Amino acid sequence: MFASRFTLFIAIMAIISSLANASDPDPLQDFCVAVNDSKAAVFVNGKICKDPKTVTGDEFFFSGLNRPGNITSPVGSKLTEVFVDEMPGLNTLDISLVRIDYAPNGGLNPPHVHPRASEILVVMEGTLYSGFVASNSKDPNIRNKLFAKTLYPGDVYVFPKGLVHFQMNVGESNAVAFASFSSQNPGIITLANSLFGSWPPIDPQVLARGFQLDNNIVSDLQSRLWVQN
Rank of each mutant, 00 (worst) to 15 (best):
residue 86 E to N: 03
residue 146 L to I: 12
residue 38 S to G: 01
residue 185 N to L: 14
residue 51 D to G: 10
residue 26 D to V: 13
residue 21 N to Q: 13
residue 12 I to Q: 14
residue 8 L to R: 12
residue 75 V to G: 14
residue 68 P to C: 09
residue 121 L to S: 15
residue 202 I to Y: 11
residue 116 R to P: 09
residue 104 P to R: 15
residue 110 P to D: 03
residue 17 S to F: 14
residue 220 D to Q: 09
residue 57 G to P: 14
residue 129 Y to A: 01
residue 123 V to T: 00
residue 181 F to P: 08
residue 40 A to C: 08
residue 1 M to W: 09
residue 68 P to I: 01
residue 3 A to Y: 15
residue 142 I to T: 10
residue 151 L to W: 05
residue 127 T to Y: 00
residue 159 F to S: 00
residue 198 S to C: 07
residue 135 S to F: 13
residue 190 T to D: 02
residue 129 Y to W: 07
residue 163 L to W: 08
residue 48 I to P: 08
residue 96 S to K: 02
residue 8 L to E: 15
residue 68 P to K: 03
residue 66 N to Q: 02
residue 45 N to C: 00
residue 148 A to V: 08
residue 88 P to Q: 05
residue 170 V to L: 07
residue 229 N to Q: 12
residue 106 G to Q: 04
residue 169 N to F: 08
residue 190 T to P: 02
residue 178 F to Q: 05
residue 128 L to D: 00
residue 162 G to M: 06
residue 164 V to E: 05
residue 88 P to K: 06
residue 139 D to E: 08
residue 100 I to R: 10
residue 33 V to H: 06
residue 213 L to I: 11
residue 224 R to L: 15
residue 149 K to N: 14
residue 167 Q to H: 03
residue 49 C to H: 15
residue 144 N to C: 02
residue 154 G to W: 13
residue 133 V to M: 05
residue 110 P to C: 02
residue 53 K to A: 11
